[in-house]
Write a protein that binds this DNA or RNA. Structure first.
Lengths: 126, 126
DNA sequence: TCTAAATATACCTTGACACGTATATACTCT
DNA sequence: AGAGTATATACGTGTCAAGGTATATTTAGA
């Protein structure tokens, strides 16, 4: 399974979040997140095979702890978008600046001739 | 559908990546990503309803462009993990520093500047 | 008004996966 | 060795999402 699918599952995200603070045994995770033991074990297996966590044996217990790499990949995928929304903020600022100097100006040129409107879909801007 | 599930789908991630550079019509996305037109439209619908993109009408076309908020939420979820792996890097550095002292080896590559009570910089990824 | 282009949607099928229950495995302690 | 604890796995089941094909909707242009 692939990194983005792994963190698509809410229980797995919860487990990862738990493990940020410190390593935990299966039973501790089970109790804190109120999931069944097989469910926890199965999610941990998925996380382990994808490199999100690693385990070490401690008597009958297994202690699971985070490994950084897969989440760093996710983080890396986000990088271009971070640049995008920074640029977006800049554009908003420039726009507000223009509003400042042209608040009394009315737009007189229509962008393009339009026929009868169709019904807009949700999230569609006119 | 929820943000993490949305970006779990590879074609949707590809669409989002395409839209970082500029807005695109459905047909343009279809051709660049070699997906069928219904597939593109259906993914765009999912993305639109989740707020990842918005569309505006341009004659028979619809131009889709990115909206930042949902990916910013994903980014926010990652924040604690970034602190986690920064801490790991710091620990590694301290370890290497101790190695330095005990071996008197000269280091060839520079490390990050460090000081007492060092705090990570905003948006620091490394 | 007819046709072609661009996009959206309906319906169907298929596969993946998350969970529960039951059971297996591994380790500790007496 | 036997009992108890902690964890892993096997199996069956229901759900849901992704893609394909076919069709509907909207618009430009002749």
């Amino acid at each position: 399974m692939e990194s983005f699918e792994i963190i698509a599952e809410p229980n797995r995200r919860a487990i990862l979040t738990l493990l940020v603070s410190s390593q935990q045994s299966v039973g501790e995770i089970e109790r804190q997140l109120r999931m069944s033991q097989p469910t926890v074990s199965k999610h941990l297996r998925v996380l382990r095979e994808a490199g999100f966590v690693e385990s070490k044996v401690d008597a009958q217990r297994r202690l699971y702890r985070l490994k950084p790499e897969p989440l760093q990949e996710v983080d890396a995928w986000l990088a271009p978008f971070r640049r995008f929304w920074s640029a977006h903020l800049d554009a908003l600022e420039r726009h507000l600046d223009r509003m400042d100097q042209s608040t009394s100006t009315k737009r007189k040129t229509k962008r393009r001739p339009r026929g009868p409107n169709r019904k807009p879909n949700k999230g569609e801007t006119k």
